[in-house]
Measured scan of single mutants.
Amino acid sequence: MIVFVRFNSSHGFPVEVDSDTSIFQLKEVVAKRQGVPADQLRVIFAGKELRNDWTVQNCDLDQQSIVHIVQRPWRKGQEMNATGGDDPRNAAGGCEREPQSLTRVDLSSSVLPGDSVGLAVILHTDSRKDSPPAGSPAGRSIYNSFYVYCKGPCQRVQPGKLRVQCSTCRQATLTLTQGPSCWDDVLIPNRMSGECQSPHCPGTSAEFFFKCGAHPTSDKETSVALHLIATNSRNITCITCTDVRSPVLVFQCNSRHVICLDCFHLYCVTRLNDRQFVHDPQLGYSLPCVAGCPNSLIKELHHFRILGEEQYNRYQQYGAEECVLQMGGVLCPRPGCGAGLLPEPDQRKVTCEGGNGLGCGFAFCRECKEAYHEGECSAVFEASGTTTQAYRVDERAAEQARWEAASKETIKKTTKPCPRCHVPVEKNGGCMHMKCPQPQCRLEWCWNCGCEWNRVCMGDHWFDV
C-alpha cells in the first residue's frame, strides 16, 4: 500500500509500505531520502505521535493516508518512550493509558441525555464484534464512529474520518494533550489543546475536521460531520418502519427517538411537499423529531443533505422563500418566477423588478396576487391545505425507538455506581478489583462488596467470576 509523507509540512511524497511495516522502518526510509538522522524524526498522525514499535496496521493507516513527519531533536526523557523501550505506560498493571487514536474515538455516547454525564468515556458498548469485510486488514473493525456528507465523488452519507490540525499553522502536526470525549470537544473551536510539532510553531489549540472515509482524499478535501447519525450498535428499532437498520439518525429530543435514513428521507420529502418545515429565527429551515417532541429541531442543517441534490435544492429554495415571508415580504405569483420581494408595508401595487435578471417585471396586487387592478379585489380565496398535519407515529413504536432507553438498560445490566462519587462504572470481565475512572475520584473498590478495596476482598473473592 501507499502512504503519503509530508516532511516538515512540505509537499508530500509517496512511500510504499506493508501492513506489518513498523513506524521506525518508515522513519528509516524517510531519513534516507531526506539525509537526516532517523532518531530525530517524529511521525504524527490523527493528533498522535506514533511509536517506533507500532506497525502501519496498528495505527489504522489506510491506503493513501497522509502522515506528517517532522525533524525535531529529542528532548530529555522522550527518546526512550518513542523507541518502544522502557515506557512506564506499558508496564503490566499500570494505570496510565495511551491517548486514544482519533481513528478509534467514539462519540456516540454523547447523544445520551444530559443526566448521563461521564458515560462518553466510561461506558463502552460490546456491539462492535462484526466481522471485518472481505479485503480489510485482519482485526480491523467495521464499526463506524462518525458519518459525514461527502460532496465529492460519493454525493451521499458516508463513514467519516476525524482529523485534527494546529489552529495556528493549519498543519496536521499537532499532538493532542488528551483525546475528545464528546461532540462539544470536536465542534467547539479551541476547546481542546495540544502541542504543535512543526518547527518554530508555538500553536497549542486544536482544530478538528472530518474527511470522507470511503475514498482517498487530499489535504484540502473536508466534509461536514453529521453528528446525529450513528451506527445502530444498540439495535434500536426505527420509529417509523420498526426495522432494525444501521446507520440511524438520533433526534435530540428527551427520548432520543431513532429513525433509519430511508424513513428520514421520506419524512423530509413529505414535509417538504406540504411546505411544513419549521422556520426558526436562529436555526433556519428545519424539522423536529418525527414524533413531534418539543425542543427537538435539527440544529445542523447539513443533515438535510440526505435528501439528495434535487430535493436539497428545493429545500434551500423553500427556506429562502419562507425567510422572505417571515420578513413581511411577498413572492411573485407569476408561474416560473417566484422571486422574493420586500415592498413597503402599505404598498398595494407590487412590481417584480426586472433588474439584474432576477425579476420578471410582472405587476400584481398584494392582496389577491392577481395582475394589478384598481378598486376592490374580486375574490380572495383562503389558501387550502395549509394546516399542519401531524406525522403519524405509532405510540408503541415510539416507545421502542428510544436510544436513551437502550442506554439505561445497558447501564443497569453492566454497571454499578462507584461507592464514593456514584458514577456508573462498567465491568466487562476481569477481577473484582475496580478503579473509578473519574479523575477527581480514582477510588479503588470491590465490585462484589461495593466497598473500598481491602485485604478481605483480596483474599476471599479477588478473582471470582
Rank of each mutant, 00 (worst) to 15 (best):
K220P: 10
G357T: 15
V30Q: 01
S286G: 00
G329R: 03
T237A: 14
P335M: 08
K27A: 03
S136I: 12
P247T: 06
W453D: 01
D274P: 00
V15M: 06
Q400S: 15
K427Q: 09
E404K: 09
G94K: 11
F362R: 04
F381M: 09
S10E: 05
C352E: 02
L187H: 04
R33W: 04
T240F: 08
I2E: 15
K151Y: 12
F277V: 04
Y147E: 00
Q25S: 07
T125G: 14
K413A: 14
S101H: 09
D394H: 06
C212P: 00
P437K: 04
T103R: 11
C201P: 02
C352M: 02
H227R: 14
L162P: 00
G160K: 00
L187N: 06
P153T: 11
Q252I: 03
R128T: 13
S167F: 06
E376H: 11
N356Y: 09
R104V: 08
S233V: 11
L61E: 00
V324D: 04
K435D: 13
Q63C: 10
Y143K: 09
N144A: 05
Q71I: 04
D87P: 11
C365E: 03
N273K: 03
W183K: 01
M1L: 08
P335L: 06
K220W: 09
G375T: 07
A398P: 04
K408Y: 09
K413L: 12
E321A: 12
N448Q: 05
L26M: 05
F208C: 06
N295G: 09
V278A: 09
I236M: 06
Y267K: 01
P99N: 14
G35P: 01
A134K: 11
D460S: 15
W183N: 01
H303W: 01
Y143M: 13
V269L: 04
T387I: 13
G450F: 04
V43C: 14
H227P: 15
D184H: 05
E49V: 03
R128E: 14
Q64F: 14
R275V: 00
T388P: 13
V148D: 02
H373Y: 02
W54E: 11
V324K: 06
D262G: 04
K427C: 06
P99Q: 14
W183S: 01
D130S: 11
Q165E: 09
L342R: 08
E96L: 11
E322P: 03
L287W: 00
P132F: 10
R51T: 04
